[in-house]
Amino acid sequence: MRTRLPAGLLVGTGLVLMLLLVLPTLALLARSAMPSFLSALQGPTVTAALRLSLGTTAVSLLATVVLGTPVAYLLARFAFRGKALLEALLDLPLVLPPVVAGLALLLLVGRRGLLGAPLEAAGVHVAFTSAAVVLAQLFVASPLYIRSMKAAFRSTPPSLEAAAVTLHASRLRAFRRVTLPLTLPAFIEGCVLTWTRALGEFGATIVVAGSLAGRTQTMPLAIYAELERNLNTALAMGAVLTLVAFALLLTFRRLTRAA
């Protein structure tokens, strides 16, 4: 098992997929690097979409951290009946096609949906609002955060917390001062993955939230709409999203290496 495969063979076969994974991004960046790059980004739809994307993903990330951390802790530290089933259900949004996720959400919160109809009667509209955008992002992206925090909590021995408690730390303080620092790399990873996934959300959003500039048209939806109106704008917006995502991944690598 310890013998290595010949390096030439590895590089040769590996290169095929590596090129396939890298070249499309390079093609996009090369094509969008044009003199009109900045002016292409100055339309009102672009600023509205960028603002909406940043706002909704900030909300969905915050909600993920606040609501997802207890879920991950619960799943990592407690055993109960039906846990495997629950874990599979919570992972399901990750493997569902986004369009299906959007359809499922629409049947839940749409005007005639399971929750939508009673909400509607109470005067609360969800479908076609920014709340629906956040909901779609939360649905498809938060399982990534739960997964990485769950693994981190699992690999942090509860005995460390117990030791802190014997040293007269409160349980909350023990969690804050012992467990949280140890899970920091996983926390950063979970946040980066969740945020980038939410930023790129398209399929579920267009189904449950629709596409209206300034209200529900996030960057990916705006890029899709601009493709048919102004290709240069679509390219420039695509390049911006790519660069943002890449910068995030790179920072994340640095941070986890430091932690």
Binding site: F128, I206, A209, G210, S211, L212, A213, A225
Partner: peptide
């Protein structure tokens, strides 16, 4: 003002 979405 009532338009909530412009579909593809």
């Amino acid at each position: 003002a009532n338009v909530v979405s412009r579909e593809p």
